[in-house]
Design a protein around this nucleic acid. Structure first.
Lengths: 204, 204
DNA sequence: AATTGTTTGTGACTTTTGATACAACGGCAA
DNA sequence: TTGCCGTTGTATCAAAAGTCACAAACAATT
């Protein structure tokens, strides 16, 4: 598992490979486990090795998706915490059973300048997260919910099908279930999709 | 000017000091100049040495603020472009006459791993921008405009006074002038502020 | 088949935000 | 003083989004 990670990140430095061996631990988590909590100090850098993690902001009853973490990705805020102590401003919940690499942040601090491969990982993570968040931000500011919903469905569809409940969609998009149901119905009657239980089929 | 920058960023490496001398140029710009345009390739890393630059997203008639750049700050997207060619997704306009350090992105690519001080600058820039944008995002998702407006006024007030027109505020917050006028009036009648020409006074 | 819990549908209403149109005000230059 | 222009105020209407309440559909289990 760790070996695979080292390979995929092209970590050529033996010394870093050893540090990873010594200092990290691998844990597994079940769907639904909350692995990062808002307002808690971040002590461990978590990198997803297998499975999927949902990172989101919450506010009273509502939630909004920040991003999903897939294998070989890390939460940008934890990575940031490696450089200076900080509390999390997000939550992370396991979306699909997963395996996670845990590295205490204090070890990571210096890797960025010491190991080229780690430096690349850091930069890549920051760059991609920043661009992604910037897009989300602009969409949130300028696009009506209906469009954001439709775009989201398209981005999540596999074989033109999205298997999510209206409630789940609401929590990705920062709104409420009723609003999603209404918009989906409208999209359906516009011939853009078909609705079934726990499943949405996008047409053409 | 450049000397000052080198000092403030604690650039101790003589080699980097020389590279900066050789490869960068310093330019001055007047208020209103558009220095980064949406959808254009980013070829130059621009660092503000003096003055203030407003970075924003636009969509048809509307705009929304991303951040202001102050001295010794750089546009995070340009910094990102140093690692891989990309187009700008934002505009930047000079908000106060300014002096700017320009460094072609191709030179910067390797500095991040070569010079410790530059590495710190990169990380600091990414970290702060990311945290900032994350906050903006959550506010946009969950706070009503009225609250975002009031918070914004407080954050921009000096001596409890904000010297901006309603139109300017609208462009910071991603909405239209009429909406801002209406909300300001409401806040005034709630005793939260006093309105004058081109000026808003926050009460207590 | 009956029960239960989750998911979806929907009507009715409110609040927020946006769009349009126009009036009034204030500063400033001719 | 007059006229202009940028700024602010506001009424009206429309659209988008949020809230509440409840019913219907469906799936899973006993």
């Amino acid at each position: 598992m760790l070996h695979n990670f080292i390979h995929q990140l092209r970590i050529a430095e033996l010394e870093l490979q050893n540090e990873l061996q010594e200092k990290s631990s691998v844990t597994t988590h079940k769907k639904g486990d909350l692995i990062i909590k808002n307002n808690q100090y971040i002590k461990v850098l978590k990198i997803v090795l297998k499975g999927k993690v949902r990172v989101y902001q919450e506010n009273e009853e509502r939630e909004i998706l920040i991003y999903y973490l897939h294998p070989i990705e890390t939460c940008t805020l934890s990575l940031s915490a490696c450089f200076e102590d900080c509390k999390s401003t997000v939550n992370a919940v396991v979306a699909e059973d997963c395996t996670i690499l845990n590295i205490p942040v204090r070890f990571v601090r210096d890797w960025n300048f010491k190991y080229k491969s780690w430096n690349s990982f850091t930069i890549k993570t920051f760059r991609e997260s920043y661009h992604h968040l910037m897009n989300q931000y602009a969409n949130l500011a300028f696009q009506p919910l209906k469009d954001r919903l439709f775009d989201y469905l398209i981005s999540k569809a596999s074989n033109a099908v999205v298997k999510k409940t209206h409630q789940e969609l609401a929590k990705e998009l920062g709104t409420t279930r009723e609003v999603i149901s209404r918009l989906l119905k409208k999209l359906e009657s516009n011939g853009k999709l078909n609705l079934r239980q726990k499943e949405i089929q996008i047409l053409k």
